[in-house]
């Protein structure tokens, strides 16, 4: 969809029909004259007549193309106070390296990003400590690029600062005016960093009105379902548990469906009008034709 040239008024191409009909049937009525050696004259003027016809036809076609108004629909933006804002919180602790979990999570999150075309998305990573990798943005490309570079252990590998991550990413929404604020918290461990208590984290979440979906991955005992459930329930979100790639994928699909934004109403398309190019070329060719005509009469 991006960088593709489309026509705003494609019906303008219907003008080609009368043009070609006219090219054949509406010849200018000039004073006709008998001339004996027409066969030679026709042969002699063949080239210049062909050139002139090509000029005329291309001028007409270029004008029609400009009338059809070719545009590039460059970016699709959403007005800031509407639409969704989603904060993705991803566990990058040492345990995520087991069973290729982190790679799968990256894949699925990346997929999820692709689906949320019209939303602002942020990315936070946590392990020993939590940090905001990407603040809320429409720029999915850079999130994806960053996501692909994140490795396990980037924020330490021994501990899991779950509450801190929740607290920190909640603060992302500080200046937000979005109607719907969503956080998706993905973890495979239990909180074992005690700088921020759970209550404070939940309070912050509630303060900004963030709906938190919590996803626990791994087998039973890997994560604390009670805590995750509590976070989800308190913020109005939902808790999911996944022990396979397929399951995890389903979960993200479910979240995607649950939080379907009504994009159409809020869509605004940035158009780049390109009609100036064919129009300019047509003008140039017209001048060339005029010049030729003047030269003939000179």
């Amino acid at each position: 969809m991006i960088n593709q040239i489309i026509f705003e008024y494609p019906w303008a191409f219907a003008l080609m029909i009368p043009f070609f009909v006219c090219l054949i049937y509406c010849k200018p009525k000039l004073d006709a004259l008998f001339f004996p050696t027409m066969t030679f004259l026709k042969k002699a003027t063949k080239k210049s007549m062909l050139l002139e016809n090509i000029l005329k036809t291309s001028i007409a076609l270029l004008l029609i193309v400009s009338l059809a108004s070719p545009i590039i629909q460059d970016e699709i933006s959403i007005k800031n106070d509407k639409g969704y804002e989603i904060s993705l919180i991803v566990d990058a602790s040492g345990s995520m390296a087991q069973n290729n979990k982190f790679k799968i999570v990256k894949e699925i999150v990346s997929d999820f990003l692709t689906k949320r075309v019209h939303d602002k998305v942020g990315l936070s990573i946590f392990a020993d400590f939590a940090y905001v990798a990407v603040p809320l943005t429409y720029d999915k490309k850079s999130i994806k690029r960053l996501l692909s570079r994140i490795q396990v252990g980037i924020a330490g590998s021994r501990r899991t600062a779950l509450y801190e991550a929740l607290f920190l990413s909640s603060n992302l929404f500080k200046n937000s005016h979005a109607k719907k604020k969503i956080a998706i918290l993905l973890t495979d461990g239990m909180n074992n960093v005690n700088d921020i208590p759970l209550d404070v984290a939940i309070k912050t979440v509630k303060k900004y009105g963030i709906k938190v979906y919590t996803v626990g991955i791994g087998g039973a005992g890997d994560f604390d379902p009670r805590v995750l459930k509590k976070i989800a329930n308190q913020s109005g979100g939902k808790f999911f548990a996944a022990n396979s790639k397929q399951k995890l994928k389903e979960i993200y699909n479910t979240i995607d469906k649950l939080e379907k934004s009504k994009i159409k109403a809020n869509k605004y398309v940035k158009k780049r009008y390109l009609f100036a190019y064919p129009l300019g070329l047509a003008l140039l060719l017209s001048m060339l034709l005029l010049f030729r005509k003047n030269k003939e009469l000179a």
Binding site: D31, A32, L33, F40, K43, A44, T45, S48
Partner: peptide, 29 residues
């Protein structure tokens, strides 16, 4: 410039625009 000429044998009418180079070509033919 532009002129409409009729072939007196086939009676077909043609609009043609003539310039110096095409007339030169004509004389050559």
């Amino acid at each position: 410039g532009d002129i409409s000429l009729v072939d007196p044998t086939s009676l077909s009418e043609d609009n043609m625009s003539l310039d110096k180079s095409s007339l030169k070509e004509y004389r050559k033919l």
